[in-house]
C-alpha cells in the first residue's frame, strides 16, 4: 500500500507544556482517517506540524516517499485548519486564483470546485460578506483545487448551524466516495463514525490507539431485547455462558455478547422456552462509547 504520510516520534513542547508526545502513525492511500481526542489533546498541533506552520521540538515526519520537501508536498495536499483564512477584501474567485498561483495549478478547476460546494453563484462576492458556513465551504473548494492526494480537515463543522454541518458532511462523503484519502480531526465522534475507516486517538498529546475502527475494541457487540415477561428473560440469559453483563431499564434488556452469535438463533431458542420477543436489535458499541471506554481505562 502507498504511504502518504509517516509521522515518527513527533514531540512538540510549548514551554513546560507538552502538546504532542512521541507520536507515531502513518496514513495509507485510499482510507479515511479520523484523529480523535478531546479539546487540547494535540490534534491541531500535530496537523500544524505536518503542514509546516508549527515547528516541531523533536521527531520526524515525511510526506509521500520521503524525498519531497514539505512545501512541495503540500502542493499535493488540500488542508483546512480551524478557521477559514482568506483575504477578506477579495472575492471568492480572486482568492481561488491566488491559491492556484501558490499551488501552481491551472485555474480551470475553480469553477468545478465552486460548483461542488455550491458557491458558484456567489463567486464575485467579497469573502468578508460570506457567512461562516460559506467561508468553510470556500475553504473546502480551495483545498480541492489541486485535486489533492489527501484532504486534511481540522474541525470542519465547528461553529456551523445544523444545516451547515449537514452540507459539509455531504461534501465530505462525496469526496470520500471518489477515493480521496481524508484525514479528519474532530472531537465530534458521530461525525468521525459516519465517514472514517481508521482512527488515531489522542489524549494529552499521547496516542492511545491507531488502526481500523472495527478493531478498536475486541467486542462482539450487544443485544437489545424486549418481551412481556422481562424477569423470565433475564433468568434464561443469566444462566447462559455466552452472555456477559445484563442490564435492564424501562423494560429494555441490554445484554453484552461474549462470543459471535446469530440473533435469529437466539430468537428461536427463546421462543422454544416460551418467550416471545417484541424487540430484538443487535448493535455494536458506538464510537463514542468505545472512545469513552478507551480514554477512561487509560486514565485509571
Amino acid at each position: 500500500m502507498e504511504t502518504i504520510l509517516t509521522v515518527s516520534n513527533l514531540t512538540k513542547k510549548f514551554g513546560y507544556l507538552t502538546a504532542v508526545k512521541d507520536l507515531s502513525f502513518s496514513i495509507e492511500k485510499g482510507n479515511v482517517y479520523g484523529i480523535l481526542g478531546p479539546n487540547g489533546s494535540g490534534k491541531s498541533t500535530t496537523l500544524g506540524i505536518v503542514l509546516n506552520v508549527v515547528n516541531r521540538t523533536s521527531g520526524n515526519f515525511t510526506w509521500f516517499d520521503g524525498h519531497t520537501s514539505t512545501h512541495e508536498a503540500l502542493k499535493k495536499v488540500g488542508a483546512i485548519i480551524e478557521r477559514p483564512n482568506f483575504y477578506p477584501y477579495m472575492s471568492a474567485l480572486q482568492n481561488l486564483k491566488l491559491v492556484s498561483k501558490i499551488k501552481e495549478v491551472p485555474e480551470d478547476r475553480i469553477e468545478e470546485t465552486l460548483q461542488l460546494v455550491g458557491l458558484w453563484e456567489r463567486k464575485d462576492s467579497k469573502f468578508r460578506t460570506y457567512s461562516l458556513g460559506m467561508k468553510q465551504r470556500l475553504a473546502i473548494a480551495s483545498a480541492l483545487l489541486n485535486d489533492p492526494e489527501i484532504l486534511i480537515l481540522d474541525e470542519p463543522t465547528n461553529g456551523l448551524d445544523p444545516q451547515g454541518i449537514h452540507q459539509i458532511r455531504q461534501i465530505i462523503k462525496k469526496i470520500a466516495s471518489q477515493g480521496t484519502t481524508i484525514l479528519l480531526a474532530s472531537h465530534l465522534l458521530d461525525e468521525v463514525e459516519k465517514v472514517c475507516s481508521h482512527v488515531v486517538i489522542l489524549r494529552k498529546g499521547e496516542k492511545l490507539y491507531s488502526g481500523p475502527v472495527e478493531d478498536m475494541m475486541a467486542s462482539h457487540g450487544f443485544l437489545e431485547l424486549k418481551c412481556r415477561d422481562t424477569s423470565a428473560l433475564v433468568d434464561i440469559l443469566s444462566g447462559d455462558e455466552r452472555f456477559g453483563k445484563i442490564e435492564e431499564s424501562l423494560g429494555l434488556v441490554t445484554v453484552v455478547l461474549r462470543e459471535k452469535m446469530d440473533p435469529g438463533e437466539l430468537n428461536e431458542h427463546l421462543f422454544k422456552k416460551g418467550i416471545v420477543l417484541t424487540h430484538l436489535v443487535m448493535r455494536r458499541e458506538s464510537l463514542e462509547e468505545q472512545f469513552l471506554n478507551l480514554t477512561k481505562s487509560q486514565s485509571n
Binding site: V53, S69, H71, K75, I81, N85, F86, P88, I102, E104
Partner: peptide, 17 residues
C-alpha cells in the same frame, strides 16, 4: 491579522518563498 500567512504556507508556499 487575516492569518492568510498560515494558509499560504499550508497551500504550499515555503517560508523562504
Amino acid at each position: 491579522s487575516n492569518k492568510t500567512i498560515k494558509q499560504n504556507l499550508i497551500d504550499g508556499l515555503s517560508k523562504k518563498e
